[in-house]
Design a protein around this nucleic acid. Structure first.
Length: 546
RNA sequence: GGUUCCGUAGCUCAGUAGGAUAGAGCACAAGUUUCCUAAACUUGGGGCCACAGGUUCGAAUCCUGUCGGGACCGCCA
């Protein structure tokens, strides 16, 4: 509100000076000596107008149509900043608007019902999810929540491949474990097999359900083991996702692309466009014609396609399903392959600007200051299940979301396990619980509260600080979504909680005179709603008691 | 060797449409409770923003290079 208000009066003044089409940057000064809001527009225009910034600033102020009910003071400072101070009445009005919107404050319609597909997790059913999948899933799920909050029509998709090499490997590994448990203790695991403990569990389960009769190693039998393992793995994965409060609407099987003929259709199209050619019995994508470094194999000499072909077909499929926006969440291990896929999809005539690829970096787990190695081969990797079990879903989600997606985040197990004030999750949740307890006290103590629209009881600077922070919420949501950075929201909530705790410490609610009490209750209610909404978007619970 | 991410306080990290004195949490030190939850609040010390150049009124932020760490560079996905 202060942003729109200030932008409007500035634009008005600018047009009086004959300046149009400039973007006005408004920011909250770090130092409160510089007012409630600040703009550097005069400095921005210095070059264009060939005039000293401070003189431009003065011209602007002279032309500002200032309503003294809203604006207390405007000053020029430093090299040419224009600083605004707002009136208590304005802050009261802001709080009033926030209160009227109630739980819907911050919800927006800018998405306008546009269809967004967010794809995340997308782990193949070869085993348990690990912490890397967790980061992927939690980022995707939170972005989906954000889009939803902004009024987009969101579909959450999980893409998987239950065929191919990795799955055959899995089948073989389970089969070997089965043989080891039945007739052949010395049967050797394939070199690139899955060595993790759960493979043995699957084999044991197979025995429980099917007995221990001798099973010959052949394709048909391996198929049976594969299907068996796949079903168990998917059950486990889905359970883990639910435990972490990650939701998916649709599961898309890569195989569908083959069965429906989409892969063949893609190959045909590529041939027509001369983007594919044969060399050494394989089919190669002519990526060099699309501005990329090297051509890559699309179909191996064995006749099997590489992952590139279905990836391209899948993106086309997404376009054809009519999505306005396509969001992919990938780990940094995919970073090299994405340009290939995008380039081909673009060459086939699709508007790839609608694709937003979010790449997150890897995680390092530390315990007692030591890095916990995560190795797939040895099977010693920490599973998501174990992590959730140990520290709880709220903590896992928050820790995975509290850093920029582009940082190599360090997951400190000791800190995560800490059930104390050191753990940043509880700081937020505690603010929520504190507010709830005020209302509980009022209810139980039969305290009379007269709610009124008159917020003139709000006059302390801590209260204004809190209102300013509350008013940022809608912009924070937009920012976090646009930049695909959930941590923008978690950082904001932490700051909000901090200002609230400060307010709580300085301003009593119960027992104050009616006007002050009702005003502060409105403030507490608004804070509670925003924390609850924010935590909900992050997929974290808002406890009423702690 | 190439591509890419990162390098900011003792530790973990914000800040990168160029702007005012570079911030937060933790750790460390000192304080706050007859009063709505002390899982809280207040105050303090702590910095060659990896390094070197460049662009300009102004650079942690943009450009070039160097160094250090992660990821990727396959007829694996």
């Amino acid at each position: 509100m202060i942003y729109n208000f200030t932008r409007t009066i500035l634009m008005d003044a600018l047009s009086k000076l004959g300046v149009d089409n400039v973007q006005i940057i408004l920011e909250k000064p770090k130092n409160s000596d510089f007012g409630d809001l600040s703009t550097n527009i005069a400095m921005q225009l210095a070059k264009q107008l060939k005039k000293a910034p401070r003189l431009i600033a003065q011209d602007l102020i002279d032309n500002l149509n200032i309503d003294n009910n809203f604006v207390q003071k405007v000053e020029i400072a430093g090299a040419g900043f224009i600083n605004f101070w707002f009136s208590p009445f304005f802050f009261q009005k802001m709080l009033s608007d926030i209160s009227i919107a109630s739980e819907n404050y911050g919800k927006q319609t800018i998405g306008n019902g546009q269809k967004v597909l967010v794809e995340y997790v997308s782990a193949n059913p070869t085993g348990m999810l690990h912490i890397g999948h967790g980061r992927n899933g939690v980022i995707g799920d939170t972005l989906a929540n954000l889009y939803d909050f902004l009024g987009y029509d969101v579909t959450r998709e999980y893409y998987f491949n239950n065929a191919g090499n990795q799955m055959r490997n899995l089948a073989k590994s389970v089969y070997v474990r089965y043989r080891q448990l039945t007739d052949a203790p010395d049967f050797e695991m394939p070199e690139d097999g899955y060595f993790a403990e759960y493979i043995i569990e699957i084999a044991k389960k197979y025995i429980v359900e099917n007995g221990t009769e001798f099973i010959e190693q052949n394709d048909k039998n391996l198929q049976k083991f594969q299907k068996f393992a796949e079903i168990i793995n998917f059950e486990n994965i889905k359970k883990t996702l639910i435990d972490l409060n990650i939701h998916q609407d649709t599961y898309f099987n890569e195989n569908h692309l083959y069965e429906s003929g989409k892969i063949q259709a893609l190959l045909d199209k590529l041939k027509v466009k001369d983007l594919i050619y044969e060399k050494e019995d394989a089919l190669w994508l002519r990526l060099s014609a699309l501005g990329l470094e090297n051509d890559r194999v699309a179909v191996k000499s064995t006749g099997e396609p590489t992952y590139r072909l279905p990836d391209i077909a899948y993106h086309i499929e997404k376009f054809e399903r009519g999505y306005d926006k396509i969001v992919d969440i990938f780990g940094s291990d995919h970073i090299a392959t994405i340009p290939d896929v995008i380039a081909v999809v673009k060459a086939l005539g699709y508007d790839t600007d609608r694709i937003d690829v979010v790449i997150h970096q890897f995680i390092t787990l530390t315990e007692n200051g030591q890095q916990v190695k995560m190795s797939k081969r040895s099977g010693k990797s920490y599973t998501l299940d174990e992590l959730i079990e140990e520290v709880g879903a709220d903590v896992v989600r928050f820790f995975l979301l509290m850093r920029g997606v582009n940082t190599h985040l360090e997951f400190d197990l000791n800190l995560a396990k800490e059930q104390s004030d050191k753990n940043p999750v509880f700081y937020l949740q505690y603010a929520h619980a504190r507010i709830c307890s005020i209302f509980e006290k009022i209810e139980k103590g039969n305290i009379q509260v007269k709610f009124s629209n008159n917020l003139s009881g709000i006059n302390e600077s801590v209260e204004f600080e809190l209102i300013k922070k509350l008013a940022e919420f809608p912009y924070i949501i937009q920012d976090a979504t646009k930049n695909a950075e959930p941590h923008i929201l978690s950082d904001y909530l932490r700051e909000l909680a901090s200002i609230f705790h400060n307010f709580y410490h300085n301003c009593r609610i119960i027992g104050e005179e009616a006007l002050i009490m009702s005003g502060r209750l409105a403030l507490a209610t608004a804070t509670k709603n925003i924390i609850a909404n924010g935590l909900n978007i992050l997929g974290i619970s808002s406890p009423e008691k702690m």
